[in-house]
Structure formats: C-alpha cells, structure tokens
C-alpha cells in the first residue's frame, strides 16, 4: 500500500479490490500510485476507492488502465 510518489490527481476505481488490481498494473509499468478512500467525492455513490497518481502521469495511468480493460474516472477537484 506504500506509494513512492504521490501528489495531486486521483482516479476513482470503485472497490478496494479494483483499486489494488489497478495499482499493481500501474506498478508493473513503473508508475507508482497510492490507494486512497475517496468517499462522497463521486456523486451519490458513497464509499469508494481511488488511486492517487502524480498529475504528470495521469494520462499515462489512464491509458494503461484503459488498455487493461479497467474503468477509471478522474476525480474532480483533485488537481
């Protein structure tokens, strides 16, 4: 669960299982992220988990996740 660099941007993923899977996928591409709980930050969803990534790597992270079939949504107000 340790992140090597974190700041700024976050990608909402849903359950903690999905966040772990996404984090491992990014780590395998040397993109380090941190799992955060971001309750209430996505409208009417309640509890969910997100990955915090360096803003400079946000696009790369989204591309990697999309290619792996993992749906992620950029959290508003996290830049």
């Amino acid at each position: 669960m340790e992140a090597k660099q974190t700041s700024g941007c976050a990608i909402a993923l849903g359950s903690l299982n999905r966040a772990i899977r996404a984090r491992d996928l990014l780590a395998s591409a040397a993109l380090f992220s941190k799992i955060i709980k971001a309750d209430g930050k996505l409208s009417n969803q309640g509890c969910f988990y997100a990955l915090e990534v360096p803003c400079a790597s946000l696009k790369k992270a989204l591309d990697l996740l999309r290619r792996a079939g993992i749906k992620g949504q950029v959290l508003p107000g996290r830049k």
Binding site: R18, N44, G46, C47, Y49
Partner: peptide, 17 residues
C-alpha cells in the same frame, strides 16, 4: 454491506463484491 457504493440500495454489479 460491500464496502463501496454504499449509498446505493442494491448490491454492486461487480464481482466479487
């Protein structure tokens, strides 16, 4: 309880939750 999407009345669609 499933730990996420807790404001929704139904169980999540995704496995395994």
């Amino acid at each position: 309880g499933s730990g996420y999407r807790s404001l929704l009345p139904d169980m999540p669609v995704e496995l395994p939750e």
